[in-house]
Each structure stands twice: as C-alpha cells, then as structure tokens.
Amino acid sequence: MSLTNAANTPAVAAMKLRAEQLCVAFERDSKSVSVLEDITFDISDGEFICIVGRSGCGKSTLLNVLAGFLAPTSGSVIIDGEPVHGPDPRRILVFQEHGVFPWLTVEGNIGFGLSKLPRAEREHRVAHYVQMIGLQGFERTYPSDLSGGMKQRLQVARALAVNPDILYLDEAFGALDSITRLAMRKELLRIWQTERRTIIFVTHDIDEAVQLADRVVVLSSNPARIEDILTIDIRRPRNISSPHYLELRDKLLEQIGQAYTV
C-alpha cells in the first residue's frame, strides 16, 4: 500500500516481479502446517535468479506460487505492477521431467502454444527453436524416442516459443546425468544471453546456482523463510575453479547447513 516505494524506484533495470510477504500453509490432519513464511523479494527484468534450499523445504511450492499455479494463503505476487491470479502464457513453468506432451512430435510440442499464429509464422518459429536446441532432423520424432536431455531442451524450447517474459524452471536439469547437466547449463545461459528473459530457477544443486545465477535466494527449512539473498558477482563466462567461485559456493553450502568436506 505504500505509494512512495512504488513511485521512487527509477532503478537501473525495471522491476519485473515482486513477492510480498508470501505465506503458504497446508491443512494436514486438521492442523495447519506452514510451508512458506513471509517471503519477500524483488526481481528485476532480465535477471537470472536461483532459489536453493534443502530438499522438501518448499522451493517448488514457492515457484508454483510465483507462477500462479498455487494461490498463497496470504501475501501476493506482483508482476509488471499487476497481481498474479493464475497461470499465464506470458510466464511458462518448465518441469523437472515428463513435462513434454508424449502424444506430440518435437514440432508439435514446440508449436503447442502457437496455435493462434498464422501458419507461416508458426512454422518459422518452430524451425527457429528446433535449430536453437539443436534438434534438427528430429522434427517428426516423438518424445519417447528422445534422450532425457533432448526432452528437457524440448521443454525449454516449447516454453520459449510463446515468447514469455519469465521462465520458471523447477529443478529442470535435476533428473539428468552430470555431463548432460553441464551442457544444459551452458545452453540455458546462451539462450538467456541471446533472448534476455527473466529466469527463476529452482535447484538443490549449489554448483548449479553459483554457475547460473545473478542472485541466489537461499531458503531455510520448516517453514521456508528467506535465509539470505546472495549476489554472485562473477563475470561470465564463469571460471568454476576460481577462488571467488569456491568462496561463494562454500558460503552457500554453509547457509544450507552443509559442511564442505565429505
């Protein structure tokens, strides 16, 4: 309700998303269990944000609230000055796995959100994103014949094809092997740098967060509160064995409550 705050923010980048005192509680055995408590942060346009926390801490719940799939018990999500009331094609959620439609081919999946476009435009866009994710030659292939990494690239392409302002990724690379995961991170960074979209990426992988994010939101557990918001001030392309990288990574590990020796 404070007008002064909203009016006096001629920031460098425009504010894209604001989470305001989000709380989520579920009913369990007729008791109310709090999952998210008092989550407040701002994300500016074009920013790459990672949300990390222990597994089961409520990261995905938070993402579902931000994407409009779940209404918060209290508080609100404001995007471009408007409160979020539900899912919207301007912001697409990419799921961990099995998110592509198995009954559609690669082309059909990428073109899924484009049915309102004229045919020529649609085909052009589908071809563009097939190219971008390197699936040329697989246009008519069904997802069951693709590898896990290909399916995730396809899911990202399907999301990007509708030209969303915000991309939400829910542990999108979590089910992939570590080599594919590295390749996917590079790919995502490349796409982000060419298309400049706001990305909110939930992960339980600390390295992933430090490699990708501009800022990392660290959540505590039971219920999830914001522990810290860490700015990753390493220039891209990031050297992942530089002392500063390791320092930031260790700090994150510590905040999550893990020692960095095995």
Partner: peptide, 17 residues
C-alpha cells in the same frame, strides 16, 4: 498426470482447446 494438466493450463488454452 497433473503435469500435463498444468502445462496445458500454462499455455492459456480455451476450454475447448
């Protein structure tokens, strides 16, 4: 799977679509 329903909702389809 709830995933397909959520993905479908996300792309803003009309009820018929």
């Amino acid at each position: 799977p709830a995933l397909y329903i959520d993905a479908g909702r996300n792309f803003g389809l009309s009820p018929f679509a």
